[in-house]
């Protein structure tokens, strides 16, 4: 199992217990998770993610076998193409972008260019629908959730685009998935960190309608309890208990 939605570093709006790489490795051991794709949490809120990316690569270096860097690339920033090349050359397994935090709208051409460029570099683009529940956000946290329209727009940007969308719920997933052609649907994977299990059984319904292969394992550590997605899988109805998730490493 690979956790595609892990982060390190502090969060600006509340205290998060020890969001450090060595702790994450211990959590992976405890939860029997092989590897994690790891982003740098503060970078989502920095104007320039460059310093955060450097910090991320340095922090993960001692744990390179388990923790794979997912740097942030801001496509409305000068020389982002070089930043993407540097990220790939440094061993990034994917790239993160945060359109709401950077005030890039659903049809922003720079985001589409980034998605296409990531695809050409064989790097999935990791998107975050939200960091926290809307109802608990700090008064200064006004970015809002990533919209379904933004995801659809990126999925349609080119045949090489590969998106891993994290922290989405059932409504968002269905709105995007059924608003795409079958070919476009194949360009999107969804992490299960925010999908409800029983009694509403959203995860089970999505597995039945969309297929479990469109979903990947994600925890949203260190913001959320890492036990949640595993619990969700454990509580699937018996006929879905062996359902196979998608493989983000061959996406």
């Amino acid at each position: 199992m690979i956790d595609v939605n892990a982060l390190v570093g502090p969060y600006p709006f509340r205290a998060v217990p020890h969001p450090d790489p060595d702790v994450l490795v211990r959590v992976l051991d405890r939860e029997k998770t092989e590897r994690a794709w790891v982003g740098h949490l503060p970078s989502a809120f920095h104007r320039d993610p460059a310093a955060g990316n450097a910090e991320l690569f340095a922090a993960l270096k001692p744990h390179a076998q388990r923790l794979r860097a997912v740097p942030a690339i801001r496509p409305d920033w000068p020389r982002w193409e070089q930043a993407l090349k540097d990220a790939r050359d440094s061993g990034a397994v994917a790239v993160r972008a945060y359109p709401p935090q950077w005030q890039l709208g659903p049809h922003d051409t720079a985001m589409a260019e980034l998605a296409i460029a990531c695809g050409e570099s064989k790097l999935p683009l990791v998107l975050t629908v939200r960091f926290e529940d809307l109802r608990q956000r700090h008064p200064l946290d006004v970015a809002g959730d990533l919209s379904a329209a933004a995801i659809r727009s990126l999925a349609r940007a080119g045949s090489g685009v590969r998106l891993v969308v994290t922290a989405a719920g059932r409504d968002m997933i269905e709105e995007v998935h059924w608003g795409l052609t079958p070919a476009e649907q194949e360009r999107v994977l969804w992490d299960i960190s925010w999908i409800w299990g029983p009694p509403e059984d959203h995860l089970a319904k999505l597995f039945r309608t969309i297929g479990s292969r469109r979903f990947v394992y994600g925890t949203h550590w260190p913001l959320r309890l890492t036990q949640t997605p595993r619990a969700n899988l454990d509580l699937l109805p018996d006929d879905l208990s062996g359902a196979k998730l998608g493989d983000p490493e061959t996406f």
């Binding site: 405890r30 409800w196 299990g197 029983p198 009694p199 509403e200 995860l203 309890l225 036990q227 949640t228 595993r230 619990a231 969700n232 454990d234 509580l235």
Partner: peptide
């Protein structure tokens, strides 16, 4: 309440 998956996760997390 309406999410038993998070209930199980918390039960497991309490142990840790």
């Amino acid at each position: 309440d309406v999410t038993m998956c998070t209930g199980l996760a918390k039960l497991r997390a309490l142990e840790t």
